[in-house]
Design a protein around this nucleic acid. Structure first.
Lengths: 346, 346
DNA sequence: CTGTTAGCGCTTTCAG
DNA sequence: CTGAAAGCGCTAACAG
């Protein structure tokens, strides 16, 4: 797949002979005829500097091509203007609206989100946390609840704002923004039961939150039923396989809950490929309300969760704390709702 | 959608009374009974330190809970161990394998990828570049070719490795890993023509690279035909709309190329919802070979591009340069291939 | 193999 | 409103 270019280029190695020295604040100050500290203030705290000086410094910046060194600034001021974000893997569609909202909200205040991947096995969590801390973020956002006691204590000792998200706890490390996966599971079960369906199935990823939804589902049903579990992250292909497995376990299934919309889409395709009509023969409900869910044939009933709101709120909590403002709510429960579409319409 | 928790929590504000002071290398050195620089070497260059000393330092680290401060280290050593990555938006499925591969490959060498979003309008490119530079990355990876001359010169002056990716140029800013979008477009057209199809259509996003593919397509056909253009990023919903538009322009279309697989999926669904059979009445080809493409009904013919390889190669180029190794190829052309599946099978 | 010296580039005091 | 002094935490460079 990878073909090397045949252009006859010779090995090269930059930087060239003259490693170009970037201008520092000192250079700017000299250009502007002021002291370095005045130049610093003109740029980061213009309120306390005379307009004339600001103008001179601005010009000096333009002439020298000065770009501030945030590493140096952060070292002294103890504010790196970065926020660490821990996600299972960056490629999970589920969290992408959250990542976007985090990035955008933080960016608007000058903060940079630094993403790290924990993987679905929580083994890397502590190690990754250390890597992140070594960059001295001003805040940390974690997907899910921090499980290891060591990590919880370490986070608490840090003394920086921490937000756990996409789940709920009455004892967060610091703050939490999310919803109850148990409630989601039982809500879906309740919805199926209210429709009169009794032969139910679950196709689910094996991560902690998806498993909690599954538990909530069967708890509400009152007994366990056919369940297909696949390793996270679940995708369309896995959805097809999981549905095949469920239909083996019970060929007369009436309704299936899937732990993601991609997963549900695969499940529907598998059912259709076997001649089953959805929803005629089999109803399917997904989770996440992905952007495509409303536009499939049949359109997909799913659980809507406002991932972007989670990201926005998490970012705002961090920002407020960093600005020294007390936050009104340490625990924010965002709602969810079942969006009924064709895939479960009788 | 957002409901606040009703738990009666009172506003809180961390950090608590005693802002816990993190241990520094000095503390470790004192604990271990060595000088700070020896402690430093024991941790980052163990080869030159005696085993006994290393052991003592290790213990001191464990006892103090020391976590290195990379900002301080980077300030002195001029190596921040970060690489800036510029993407249009983090949520484009197209680039996610690349982002993953970048993250993982860099991470394996201790580098942290710092993502920034340029947006599809290139207006933010220069501003974002400055933001990134202010964090003094050791390398920069850009999606697409850097268009603005000012930005190109700035990048060149920086004297750090720069990789442009997902496109090709004989005059890259520094290095480039990608493929020719013009070739992709004409390859698809050639494929359609070879099948004997003459009533062709194009549904495409409006970003630069998708537009280049479209140009390559019609150039190979020899004349322009029905084209639906939607604002990037294209998704399933837009695919449905674009197909609706194309069918208005020519109800007897025989084959349509879509600029992404999500887009193609939407196009197929729209065609099916109008009673058209794919591929019986209408053939559809996507772009990207997303993970779901092989598992749709009909499975989707598409252009496979190894986005993960692009990410790996880009990361490796940066890593090699940072390690002072000359790279063999400044211009790496990765291949692409049309993967024929049911959606274009006669 | 280990230590001393001297900063990296910036911003926080504290004084004018 | 502006400046001088000091040092954030670490590591290059040079000695020993």
């Amino acid at each position: 797949m990878v073909t090397l270019s045949l252009l006859p280029v010779k090995p090269t190695m930059r930087p060239p002979a003259h490693p170009p020295k970037a201008a520092t604040l000192h250079d700017v100050a000299r250009e502007a005829g002021v002291s370095p500290i005045t130049a610093s203030r003109a740029l980061s705290n213009p309120g306390v500097v005379s307009d004339a000086t600001i103008e001179r410094v601005r010009e000096a910046v333009a002439r020298t091509g000065y770009i501030p060194n945030l590493l140096a600034g952060g070292l002294k001021s103890k504010r790196s203007m970065t926020v660490a974000g821990l996600v299972p893997v960056v490629s999970v569609p589920q969290f992408i609206p959250t990542i976007r909202a985090l990035t955008d909200t933080l960016d608007a205040q000058g903060y940079q989100l630094i993403l790290g991947q924990t993987g679905y096995a929580n083994s890397r969590e502590e190690k990754l946390l250390n890597t992140m801390i070594s960059r001295r973020p001003d805040g940390i956002v974690v997907t899910g609840l921090v499980s290891s006691q060591a990590a919880r204590e370490q986070l608490q000792r840090l003394g920086i704002p921490v937000v756990e998200m996409w789940d709920l706890s009455v004892h967060p490390v610091d703050m939490v923004v999310g919803f109850s996966h148990l409630k989601v599971g039982s809500a879906i079960a309740g919805y199926f039961l209210a429709k009169g369906w009794r032969r139910l199935g679950v196709a689910t990823g094996d991560d902690l939150r998806a498993s909690t939804r599954r538990d909530g589902f069967w708890a509400a049903v009152g007994h366990e039923g056919p369940t297909a579990v696949v390793p996270a992250p679940s995708n369309l292909e896995m959805g097809r396989r999981a549905m095949a497995e469920l239909l083996r376990k019970d060929p007369k299934l009436e309704a299936v809950y899937c732990s993601s919309d991609e997963f549900a889409q695969g499940a529907i395709i598998e059912a259709q490929s076997r001649g089953l009509r959805v929803p005629g023969d089999l109803a399917v409900c997904g989770f996440g309300d992905a952007d495509f869910a409303a536009h499939l044939l049949p359109s997909l009933t799913t659980v809507q969760v406002d991932g972007a709101a989670i990201g926005r709120l998490a970012a705002q909590l961090i920002i407020d704390r960093c600005a020294g403002r007390a936050v009104a709510q340490r625990i924010i429960e965002v709602g969810f709702q079942i969006v009924e579409r064709q895939s479960t319409a009788p």
